[in-house]
Amino acid sequence: MALVAFSAVIPLMTVVNYSVQDIFGPGQRYFIGVDWFREALRDPEVHGAFLRQLAFSGIVLAIEIPLGVAVALLLPKAGWKSSLAIVILALPLLIPFNVVGTIWQVYARPEIGFLGRVLNDIGIDFNYTGDAVSAWATIVLMDVWHWTPLVALLAFAGLRSIPDAYYQAARIDGAGRLAVFRFIELPKMKSVLTIAVLLRFMDSFMIYTEPFVVTGGGPGSATTFLSIRLVNMAVGQFDLGPAAAFSLMYFLVILLISYVFYTILQRASAS
């Protein structure tokens, strides 16, 4: 109880207190009601960051979930090859977030990075520091590289839990590869895939470190996601009141989405 109080409840209470005051310094604070909430709710920058965040989460989920399932289906089922493939697959998950950002920051540079140079050499104008499409492509590719292994490992665990009797029955019935996937593998992977969607959505919705290291939110505000906008307000501009109001609304959205996913997960496991 004390641990939860100190790690979550007291900081949250402080943020709520900050969100209704204009704070100039210790002892210099003025109650202003819900003005910071109103300001944040009507701020076009916040609207833009919210839409970009939704778009980013939607894009990475649309790529990572099918790709992760495809990788899991291609993995060797057993033996040393399976173990080796799993270890190699898991490597990106072990790299700290800021290091992932740094790797891709260098890798995608048009002058010295492998990806950036190759793309420019084959005639694609790729420059993530000056072009919004290149910046988005870099960040999405980075996230896919970093997190598809998680989806693949979860899907692989789901696949391994299917008894051989199911496959034998399908063979006797003359089911094709597609039918086996559609009627046996996919239903059996339902719960692990729901967990994968939940984890990846929450994580991508709160992403900060990697895009901050690669693009810093730019060019312009093309890759300024909610967390980057929040840090700019709180640390860059030192607007603690607006940042507190904004972070509470961000928290509410995360809480709502978590509840929806949790309910879906519970219903999936119950059925």
């Binding site: 209470m13 402080t14 207190n17 900050y18 209704v20 005051q21 704070i23 210790p26 604070r29 109650f31």
Partner: peptide
């Protein structure tokens, strides 16, 4: 608890 910047409305809210 000065650092928590309490106000009456937020205290009532949490109570």
């Amino acid at each position: 608890f000065q650092w928590m910047a309490w106000t009456t409305p937020t205290a009532v809210f949490f109570l």
